[in-house]
Amino acid sequence: MSGPVRWLSYGATAVLAEVAGPDQAQSLAAYARQAGLTALEIVPGATTVLFDGVADAGALQRALDGWRPGVVADHEGPLVEVPVVFDGPDLAPVAERWDTDEAGVVERLTGTELVSAFCGFAPGFAYLAGLPAELAVPRLATPRPRVPAGSVAMADTWCGIYPSASPGGWRLVGRTDAALWDPDRTDPALLAPGTRVRLRPVSGW
């Protein structure tokens, strides 16, 4: 169990690789896809990569022996700019928590290059990493029954954008009209894992 990956047994057809953090999970998943591994699903998480539909777990683990943190460059995914109107209802409480004003929150969020670490919760909902631990914000104690599609939100150190309207407990700081999810596109998710993301402030539409 030494080395960068801890392998966990996951039923009859899957294995779970545990690594140190989101960037390593994303890197291992990208490495596995480039290596052409035969798995039905390769699913990065916050600190794991799930390989599902695997016929031979031993062969898979050997094929990934060459992976090391950093072997897939952290910043080689495509860069997507997302226009955001920063007028969310939780902008003021986030500013208070960060000990700044609303303009300070916008500056911090737009000045950080975020990376889509993994998707979950809803099709095309990307967990965007990049904010430091001291900027973590707690989820709402009571989730909102309806968060509009396009809401730009934060929870813990993650940023996320709701691709469709749903209940949600993340802090809402803005909104975008970017098409985050379209199953008829070749790339249905705008922010697929590995995508680098810049939030660009706009004044509204």
């Binding site: 998943a29 039905l40 699903e41 390769i42 699913v43 990065p44 799930l50 599902d52 539909g53 993994f118 998707c119 979950g120 919760f121 809803a122 099709p123 095309g124 909902f125 249905p188 998710a189 697929a192 894992p193």
Partner: peptide, 8 residues
């Protein structure tokens, strides 16, 4: 099958 990494 094959879309779990996009949350599908």
């Amino acid at each position: 099958v094959g879309w779990a990494h996009l949350g599908v």
